[in-house]
Amino acid sequence: MKNKSAEKIKLTSYDDLFGTKDNSVEGIYTTVALSQLHPFKNHPFKVLDDEKMQETVESVIQHGVIQPGIVRPCADGYEVVAGHRRWRACELAGKPDMPVIIRDLDDDAATVLMVDTNIQRENLLPSEKARAYKMKYEALKHQGSKGDKHTADVVGEKAGDSGRTVQRYIRLASLINGLLDLVDTGKIAMIAGERLSYLKLEEQEMVMEAAENIGVYPSPAQAGQLKVMSEEGMLSEGSIYALLVKKEGGGQTVTISSKKIRDYFPPAYTKEQIEEVIYSLLDQWKQGKEGELNAGDTV
């Protein structure tokens, strides 16, 4: 390992480096050979060689790595906790090593830090947030966080997501990879994916195969029906095909201008987030109407 002027430092303003409010953090600042770095186990965030990566590579070539990564010791080198994109940029830039801060972190603390330093990135896929939130949720519970709702609220703090939104994402993590990919590409809405996540794994496989074969993907309403059929033990390959090819509502269709819808949401909201809000509001409206009907029947 190349150890150039390694010194133990106490970061009194850790927030300046990593955007957190955690201070009084001890670590060793040094440079580590790229060959000694290893990815975080089950790292949920994709590291793509895209246009943004090329921009990072050019920055590394011109200015070096300005913000060090965070690593922790492992059996044969160091596990990268934060800085996977910088690590890849150094590789593409032909750098032999990378500046890092070495910290002694247990699995739970490392997981929370890994998620928190990545979760505010732009354009995260639903699958990335789903897996990341699940990892952080489990880590916090293992650390002794009290109450599911409280823990979900804490998980979403860094990204500004509510506990309910966090729980929806965590449900998505129960989808098989194929269905989760369809959520990522927008072929299946997030709320539909959430409902499909309650299906058994073999049932999810059948749904994915049927959808891919006929090119029809479950709508939120159809996903809800599939969930009910699964709970009643009536879900089969035949019933899945029959439901997907059946035209929903055979009555009039309603088209709403996407521009008009956009006016109601912050510019930063993604298509998936907008859909989630709309379907949630429609669910609430439907439940309210059903409640009114039931109340009218009461003597």
Results as ranks from 00 to 15, higher is better:
residue 259 K to Y: 02
residue 95 K to R: 15
residue 25 V to N: 04
residue 265 F to L: 10
residue 16 D to P: 00
residue 162 S to W: 03
residue 233 G to Q: 03
residue 138 E to C: 05
residue 269 Y to R: 06
residue 221 A to Q: 13
residue 14 Y to R: 05
residue 210 A to N: 01
residue 174 S to E: 14
residue 91 E to Y: 03
residue 207 V to K: 00
residue 290 E to Q: 15
residue 148 D to Q: 13
residue 140 L to G: 01
residue 47 V to P: 02
residue 169 Y to M: 14
residue 229 M to Q: 09
residue 172 L to T: 07
residue 78 Y to K: 04
residue 38 H to S: 15
residue 239 S to P: 09
residue 49 D to H: 03
residue 81 V to C: 02
residue 52 K to L: 12
residue 294 N to A: 15
residue 155 V to S: 00
residue 199 L to G: 01
residue 84 H to W: 05
residue 107 D to G: 07
residue 125 L to C: 04
residue 265 F to C: 09
residue 58 E to L: 10
residue 167 Q to G: 02
residue 31 T to R: 12
residue 25 V to D: 02
residue 255 T to E: 15
residue 157 E to N: 06
residue 143 Q to D: 11
residue 53 M to N: 02
residue 44 P to K: 01
residue 42 N to W: 07
residue 248 E to I: 14
residue 231 E to Y: 07
residue 252 Q to A: 14
residue 118 N to S: 09
residue 275 E to C: 03
residue 151 T to D: 00
residue 135 M to V: 04
residue 212 E to W: 09
residue 151 T to P: 00
residue 39 P to S: 05
residue 215 G to D: 04
residue 91 E to L: 11
residue 152 A to C: 09
residue 131 R to L: 15
residue 184 D to A: 10
residue 248 E to S: 14
residue 185 T to C: 06
residue 222 Q to K: 14
residue 41 K to M: 11
residue 138 E to L: 14
residue 63 H to P: 00
residue 291 G to K: 10
residue 123 N to L: 13
residue 73 P to V: 07
residue 205 E to G: 10
residue 77 G to F: 00
residue 109 A to I: 11
residue 200 K to C: 01
residue 207 V to T: 03
residue 55 E to M: 12
residue 179 L to W: 01
residue 18 F to K: 06
residue 224 G to L: 05
residue 12 T to I: 14
residue 25 V to E: 06
residue 245 V to T: 14
residue 46 K to A: 15
residue 165 T to I: 11
residue 20 T to W: 06
residue 240 I to L: 04
residue 168 R to N: 10
residue 183 V to M: 08
residue 272 E to H: 08
residue 58 E to D: 14
residue 56 T to L: 14
residue 34 L to R: 04
residue 158 K to P: 00
residue 129 K to G: 05
residue 90 C to H: 05
residue 9 I to N: 08
residue 184 D to S: 09
residue 68 P to E: 03
residue 91 E to S: 05
residue 257 S to A: 12
residue 110 A to W: 01
residue 172 L to E: 08
residue 246 K to E: 12
residue 178 G to N: 07
residue 294 N to F: 09
residue 17 L to F: 10
residue 69 G to K: 00
residue 30 T to N: 09
residue 102 I to D: 01
residue 4 K to P: 13
residue 120 Q to I: 12
residue 206 M to C: 09
residue 109 A to G: 06
residue 176 I to D: 08
residue 163 G to P: 07
residue 163 G to Q: 07
residue 282 L to C: 08
residue 193 G to P: 02
residue 266 P to N: 05
residue 180 L to T: 11
residue 80 V to K: 00
residue 74 C to L: 11
residue 218 P to D: 01
residue 16 D to R: 12
residue 109 A to E: 15
residue 272 E to W: 04
residue 188 I to A: 01
residue 282 L to P: 00
residue 50 D to S: 08
residue 170 I to F: 04
residue 262 R to K: 02
residue 261 I to G: 01
residue 3 N to M: 15
residue 231 E to S: 12
residue 287 Q to H: 05
residue 114 M to K: 04
residue 260 K to D: 13
residue 4 K to A: 13
residue 131 R to T: 13
residue 127 S to Y: 01
residue 128 E to Q: 15
residue 54 Q to E: 07
residue 260 K to L: 12
residue 190 M to W: 01
residue 222 Q to S: 08
residue 97 D to G: 11
residue 166 V to D: 04
residue 183 V to Q: 07
residue 70 I to Y: 02
residue 8 K to V: 15
residue 10 K to L: 15
residue 217 Y to R: 06
residue 225 Q to K: 09
residue 144 G to I: 08
residue 15 D to G: 13
residue 136 K to G: 00
residue 6 A to N: 06
residue 89 A to I: 07
residue 186 G to M: 04
residue 225 Q to T: 11
residue 28 I to S: 00
